[in-house]
Amino acid sequence: MNRIVTGAHYGLRDWLAQRITAVIITLYSIILGAALLGAKPITYGMWRDFFAHGWMRVATLLFAISLAWHAWVGMRDVLMDYIKPTGLRLFLEIGTILVLAGYVAWTIQILWR
């Protein structure tokens, strides 16, 4: 097979990971959305305590990691379709990874401060 450095889909892993992370993101979003819609008005104390629960921190971190992984596969697919020069594509892929890693680090900082 003719492999290039900014290519993908040489296996099933990314495709499957994107779908598994999609299900995790969906479940977390629906549960969080329902909880927020059901609890109005929200005070600062409620909000802080909600994100202080150990299970909520872990669930939110798993959500953030799933989101980052999912977005990586998706963004790379988009870049592979529309950005043809290899150098520019690699540059944008690295940028995407840095932004996503930054999001996850930021999430950890918010949750455990």
Binding site: Y44, R48, I110
Partner: peptide
């Protein structure tokens, strides 16, 4: 999907960060 990756994820993370900083920030 691209819009959610940027700018919305960054925007919402910023709002979440501020909202959990202090009572005044939350307000």
């Amino acid at each position: 999907g691209v819009l959610l990756f940027f700018p919305f994820a960054a925007w919402l993370l910023y709002a979440l960060d501020r909202s959990l900083t202090s009572e005044q920030d939350f307000a």
